[in-house]
């Protein structure tokens, strides 16, 4: 891998990764990875222009507002940032979006959603974490509910999902619960990813692939 054309490497920003490698490791074809690079460039050059996606750029792309804080967008950003260095590199972007591909097995989507909801990274979803997430979505939706009503929602959810009644939702319980309620995983599939080359036809101009 040491023989990279100097011209090519100068054009590529720090987070860039070979589309052939990414296509081998994911559901995407080389052309689709190149189309994703067009999307990645648009986001990663929107504010800091260094070819890496910073959190403000991610927020800007999601909400049209770089200052909008949102617990769940923070969680997504942190999970996409596989190296935990505060930015999303191109390879991280492609590998993470792969989970959201319509053809990705549902088990992978279930596992990713569990990590999203395991706010403290303890390996289970606790009652306090669930309440924190309910309060965040109510705040985001500008819905006012009494503390009793919030407690009731959390209690009811635990009665359904915490099958052994130990006060925690573990990965196996989450898997059973999510399998029984597939609507919960709707946000884990992005139909756009099926037509990514149609959405970003300009990838052809920058393509290094011959197919």
């Amino acid at each position: 891998m040491g023989c990279v054309s100097s011209k090519e490497s100068r054009r590529r920003p720090p987070g860039y990764e070979d589309p052939n490698t990414l296509a081998r490791e994911t559901t995407f074809s080389v052309n689709e990875v190149e189309a994703l690079y067009e999307l990645y460039k648009r986001i990663s050059y929107s504010i800091t222009k260094d070819g890496l996606i910073h959190k403000e750029e991610f927020q800007l792309a999601l909400f049209r507002n770089s200052n909008k804080r949102n617990l769940f967008a923070d969680r997504i950003f942190d999970l996409f940032d596989l190296k935990r260095n505060g930015v999303i590199e191109f390879g991280e972007f492609v590998r993470s979006l792969d989970v959201f591909h319509p053809d990705t097995p549902v088990e992978e989507k279930i596992a990713f959603a569990f990590r999203l909801y395991d706010l403290r990274g303890t390996g289970f979803i606790g009652r306090e974490e669930l309440k924190e997430m309910v309060l965040a979505i109510l705040n985001e939706s500008e819905l006012l509910l009494s503390d009793d009503a919030v407690e009731e929602i959390v209690d009811q959810t635990f009665r359904q999902a915490d099958m052994n009644g130990d006060g925690k939702i573990d990965p196996d319980e989450w898997k059973v619960f999510a399998s029984k309620n597939p609507a919960l995983l709707k946000n884990m599939t992005l139909p756009y990813l099926k037509d990514i080359t149609m959405a970003f036809p300009s990838f052809v101009l920058n393509s290094g692939a011959s197919d």
Binding site: N70, F72, M133, L138, I153, T157, A178, N187
Partner: peptide
């Protein structure tokens, strides 16, 4: 009623999870 009382169903509707927005110009 059980569906409306499902915390995860509420949470999954967050705009923060709506990654489709990344694809909008």
């Amino acid at each position: 009623k059980p569906e409306s009382m499902n915390a995860f169903a509420l949470i999954s509707r967050s705009q923060g999870f709506n990654l489709g927005n990344l694809f909008e110009k």
